[in-house]
Write a protein that binds this DNA or RNA. Structure first.
Lengths: 338, 338
DNA sequence: TCTGATAATGTGAACGCTAACAGTTAACCA
DNA sequence: TGGTTAACTGTTAGCGTTCACATTATCAGA
């Protein structure tokens, strides 16, 4: 063990099994034209030597690395984290390797560094999850010749992209409130730099306008703290606001914290809907009504797309990536006063 | 672009620059003995051709892949996620590639599958973050000859391992409560299968015994739901309990939710300390006193260890991986009644 | 028993790079 | 000026695979 241990290669296996290296290669790759008896003999030899095929050598000759790169940003947030995790799992199930690289999603310099880092691996595809900015140009320039998939990217023209249906989700949430009888519903939006934020605004507006109500949007970011600050300042009575569609659960949580301090009852005085269904959501006070995205489905679709087993048009067709509305206790009918 | 595009190799660069391929190689690897003028000439040629070194070819000849594998489990939890993220970043800063593979930390079959998946890449090291079980034997058997680092692993004998000082953290938390005047303090522990849980119990017990108080532990897992259930059933008055050390923030959150429903005031009737400092902690009601681990430090230490720049004994010496106590509003002096 | 197909196996080269060494040029000092 | 050393550059081989092809074994059917 202490002395230099040389890993066995295909020739060592071949010699032990009494065949040529090419036959061993065929066994490894499930190639055709291999007699069952020789196959088992080779397999035995591989086991005995503890042989493990060398991915680098294979990659060199086939120029297929079996690796998929991932550029990820903002993975601290619940949404991105869920997506990334799901995609990684699918990549592995497809017998590929996922190599991810965290970048600062707001700095194109950091982005370039990340791509440079990944580039020499000879990736077969790349998945980019930078929810704040659109780096499709950068990626395409630095990595032409390999398919790139953008998650939650604004500009979907002529490139693989996929996203949760934020529009639909937001619309469903708003309709839920309208269905309960609310008229004055406001939306606390995510930051405009994030690609997710805008469709959530549009979904809300669309539902409001369809119901003959007038939308009102307050811009924010994704942070609990921001929700809290807004919650402290918001004058609900002036606008007769009885319900709020928050762009994510964290904003909703911040609002609730502030309302608690101000003795504004949720949902009696004001209803709140979130977005994400973070693990804490059911245990907040009150339990939060929210939208649950289907990350698993997204992962499957993503990997299907980049590996070419699903075409872009197909993906759009069975795009059942609607978030699901989970109704809990933070939403109720509006107070009768209004 | 449509027709087959052949990537330039080292010879193409050499030809364009009018040098030998070996000179190009020297430029790439910052080798010694290269005249500045030739160096720039080669660099220009590389830029012109868009040359990117092929990692597979290099790995093949040097048998150094520059890749570090990570076997991770339970990355949905805040603690593991933070560690993993930090370690990955450090790996990248060291100019290595991190390839992670998620496994089911409770199934050794899944573990074996994961290792098999990673093994053929010719990893230079492996980091194992399976907070529930100890897989050091499996890893050592399947991947002899490469250094393996275990995070939060119980059995640290003769192998690289590193962990947050859960014992110290838990002790500090308990001492904080004792310092406030509490006498009857209980601990809701994490699941025994997790390697983090036990030192937190011991830290609590140690502080209690040092103060001449008698410890009492209730076993749980990490889930909010479990904290909630325990909170619903707990008879604080019978035991005159005035403070609780929860093994993590989620348990604390569950407790608080239950206590709210039962109109048990926090911190007036009972103080609660958590562990993790999840992003939500400051915005719970009341804001949660908790312990914040230093993941960044852990990541640095981890990568230093596996790449050999830090020795195990050194690591133990400057092991400043104490979690920091963040005091918020969920802890206060005990009610005067008791 | 021979023929021609097809199944099974073997042979050499190539993938793109670096290690090891060999060779050449420049630099210095006496 | 020559000779010695250091700086620079080139040549060859080999890392462990797979690919394309060449070869041999097997087995029908006539």
């Amino acid at each position: 063990m202490a002395e230099k241990f040389k890993k066995p290669n295909i020739y060592d296996v071949a010699k032990l099994a009494g065949v040529s290296h090419q036959t061993v290669s065929r066994v490894i790759n499930d190639g055709p034209h291999t007699k069952p008896s020789t196959r088992t003999r080779v397999e035995l030899a591989m086991a005995e030597l503890g042989y493990v095929p060398n991915a680098a050598a294979r990659a060199l000759v086939t120029s297929r690395s079996k690796m998929i790169g991932m550029i990820v940003a903002d993975e601290i947030f619940f949404g991105p984290a869920g997506m990334i995790h799901a995609i990684k799992n699918e990549i592995r199930l497809a017998d590929y390797f996922a190599i991810s690289c965290s970048v600062d999603g707001t700095s194109s310099e950091s982005m370039v560094e990340g791509i440079k880092h990944l580039r020499r691996l000879g990736l077969e595809a790349i998945v980019v999850t930078t929810p704040q900015f659109d780096y499709s140009e950068t990626v395409r320039q630095m990595l032409p010749n390999i398919p790139a998939l953008f998650i939650d990217s604004k500009s979907g023209e002529g490139q693989l992209s996929i996203s949760l249906d934020n529009f639909a989700g937001s619309r469903i949430a708003t309709e839920h409130l309208i269905g309960l009888g609310h008229k004055n519903i406001i939306h606390i939006s995510g930051p405009a730099t994030w690609q997710d934020a805008e469709p959530r605004v549009r979904g809300y507006e669309s539902a409001m306008i369809s119901a003959g109500l007038s939308p009102k949007v307050i811009s924010a970011d994704w942070l609990i703290e921001t929700g809290y600050k807004i919650g402290l300042e918001l004058d609900l009575d002036a606008t007769k606001t009885t319900a709020i569609v928050a762009a994510n659960d964290h904003l909703a949580l911040g609002l609730m914290k502030a309302f608690k301090e101000r003795s504004i009852a949720v949902p009696d005085r004001v209803s709140i809907v979130g977005f994400d269904d973070i693990p804490e959501a059911p245990f907040l006070d009150p339990a939060l009504t929210t939208l649950r995205p289907d990350f698993e489905q997204l992962g499957k679709l993503a990997v299907g797309l980049i590996l070419g087993s699903v075409s872009q048009s197909e993906a759009v067709d069975n795009q059942t990536l609607y978030p699901e509305l989970i109704i809990r206790n933070s939403t109720a009918a509006p107070p009768t006063v209004f």
